[in-house]
Simulated assay, not measured.
Amino acid sequence: MTLAHRAASRARLAFGALILAAGMAACAPTAVSPPAPMAGSVVNPPAHGDFGHYTLALTWQPGFCASGPGCRPDQPKTPLIGLHGLWASRPQPLIAQGVPPQRWWGAGCDIYPGQDDKAPVTVTSETKQGLDQSVAHLSHSLVDHEYHKHVQCFGIPAETFFHTALDLRARVAGSDFGTTLRAWQGRVVSKDAVMRAFRATFHSETERALQLRCEHDHAGHDVLTQLWFTIKREHVGDFPRASAFIRAPEDQDDCPATFLVPAW
């Protein structure tokens, strides 16, 4: 083997080791933030990336589907903890312009000109299957809505975004906190009990790191519908470690002192 061939062989081996290491890191259940996130990630979006935090909105599917217009008849019954969205907070220029958070919540990406609400949402078959299973089936496509309102103006590829959001959902669902919620199906619980379970699992004392959302079901009961986690943008990879959480700037917890964790 010539010196040139040996050098090329060593280069191929080094490249293969790098790819293997990256694959192993991607499979880790609580992978930490990479030291230099690539452009196009949820940590460093290509556009409007100067915002502070994300809200990871998860649904308690039996409650989410039992309130409002409800879900379609083909709604999967598992998992119980579903994905609603991963919402970026206001980019700094909007804050500097005095745009209130409520306007950002309502408009999302439509606040910027040139958005295409018909832009295709292109993901792999594996990610599509995960979204079909985990996102509530509404009369309109919630996946399309989330992409057009909360993703496209940041330039993050749909596959990257939804793969990350599904992974964050799985981390909560697979935790002791998720197990506790599932054990409470059909029971009336206190908000304090839910927050104690959150703190015991994730070791976070950050105020408003988790906010609970409740609505009236069709029988008039106060039921748990959503769980909103506030995550530092640059620490998405740490989630759900305590270092990932940040205090939500606005108080949006609307659950009463006690509420039903409904079952199907």
Rank of each mutant, 00 (worst) to 15 (best):
T2N: 10
A4W: 10
R6Q: 13
A7D: 08
G16Y: 05
A21T: 12
A22Q: 14
A26Y: 10
C27M: 15
A28E: 13
T30D: 11
S33L: 03
P35F: 14
P35D: 13
P35M: 14
P37E: 06
S41M: 09
P46M: 15
A47N: 14
A47I: 10
T55I: 00
L56T: 00
G70E: 04
G70M: 03
R72P: 06
R72G: 09
D74T: 14
I81R: 06
L86P: 07
R90L: 15
Q92K: 12
V99S: 01
V99K: 11
P101V: 12
W104Q: 06
I111R: 00
G114W: 03
Q115I: 15
K118E: 11
T122F: 04
V123N: 05
V123K: 06
S125M: 01
T127G: 02
T127S: 13
K128Y: 02
K128H: 08
Q129L: 13
Q133N: 06
A136T: 09
H145V: 12
T164S: 09
D167V: 09
A173R: 11
D176N: 14
G178A: 07
T179M: 07
Q185Y: 04
G186R: 01
R187P: 07
D192I: 10
D192G: 06
V194K: 01
A197V: 10
A197W: 08
A200C: 00
F202I: 03
H203Y: 08
E205M: 10
E205S: 14
E205W: 13
E205Y: 13
R213P: 03
H216T: 11
G220D: 05
D222C: 04
Q226W: 03
L227H: 01
V236G: 06
V236S: 04
R241C: 01
R247V: 14
D251S: 12
Q252S: 14
T258N: 09
L260Y: 05
V261K: 03
V261H: 02
